[in-house]
Design a binder for these strands. Structure first.
Lengths: 187, 187
DNA sequence: ATAAACCTACCGACCGGTCGGTAGTATAAG
DNA sequence: CTTATACTACCGACCGGTCGGTAGGTTTAT
């Protein structure tokens, strides 16, 4: 048994029940250990949550950076970034659901350790939009506000997306990208 | 002391701590009652949560219906609907935060009682978009998907919006409406 | 008019159960 | 033989919820 296996199970349990409703007992049972044995690998329940949030963000930042480093027009880059991001939410759904929904269950001391990573992530999106504005591909707009709108569209999918649903994450990404780039209104 | 006062305090406590982390003790203290006295007004903690969710949805449905009943082009109606909705999230932030974030803390039996109301609410948005498509104001698009994108943009604001922040809910609404209607891309 | 009966709102004390976490010990690997 | 890993047993604190009881207003019967 190692940290990663425990984290994987913890993500599943916490995603399903929520952080506070998920007990160390529940997590232990999911990896066939005694509750006390978890404290050999992690010093507290909060440490487990923090590790999950950091792991999730690391994955997202790494994947996204790959796309953003390419030499492409901003609209095409945005399309690809949305694809990679929504694909990651799908592929690592337990981890990313915990990231997005249980962030607020982090105690203040732990949250302070986590926030810089989160800022780094959000800046990636802001910079992409800024780039699009400066190159004239996008409308003049506040990049911070647009980034939040964009993240809202995508992050909210975790509340309704089901892998066995009508649309794949790729199809959702295509439709959302079209909507974000060209809007609802016909012209 | 009456039900409404208790609900108001409960919304505040639950929003701040999350449903499972908020104890009946916490709620009682917020209204200067003993924990046991809460059980004179509500039969269980779940009943309190359900009452909060229903109350929140009732407010949102009522306000939204008023806007949607007007005779207006779909794009203008959407603009107003977003204004009313984001205004409501702001004005009743405790209640609506609980609605959006603690929905999944409802036990299955209670959730079943709540879901019809939620469907009614989401249908309002879907119908508005459908109307825009049929009248030719909006692009041909899947109304369910577009509604989810739209709700995502707006609902996600509860994770970052602060009433004392840089923008008022009205300003945010204007910017988001522009973005949703015309998209990021310049043409 | 008066007293008995009832009702609402609340309280302090307590229930069984579960929580996160700790101490000490057994077992397996190197 | 040592170290890493997992175990059993246990802790105090707190959980949601129940209990019997009470203060005080209202309704009903005499």
């Amino acid at each position: 048994m190692n940290r990663d296996q425990i984290l994987k199970a913890a993500a599943q349990v916490i995603r399903q029940k929520g952080y506070h409703a998920a007990s160390m007992q529940d997590i232990a049972k999911a990896v066939n250990l005694q509750k006390a044995s978890l404290y050999h690998h992690f010093s507290s329940k909060q440490e487990i949550l923090l590790a999950l949030l950091d792991q999730a963000l690391d994955i997202l930042i790494e994947r996204l950076s790959g796309v953003l480093a390419q030499e492409l027009p901003a609209d095409e880059k945005l399309r690809q970034a949305m694809g990679v991001y929504l694909g990651s939410l799908d592929e690592h759904s337990d981890l990313t659901s915990v990231l997005l929904l249980e962030h607020r269950s982090l105690d203040p001391e732990y949250r302070d350790r986590h926030i810089p990573r989160r800022d780094r992530f959000e800046r990636l999106w802001r910079d992409l939009i800024q780039e699009g504005v400066e190159s004239g591909v996008f409308h003049e707009t506040d990049p911070a506000m647009a980034a939040r709108a964009l993240l809202g569209v995508m992050n909210w999918t975790i509340t309704w997306y089901r892998p066995d649903g009508l649309f794949s994450s790729g199809q959702i990404s295509d439709r959302f990208a079209a909507l974000v780039l060209d809007g609802l209104r016909r012209r």
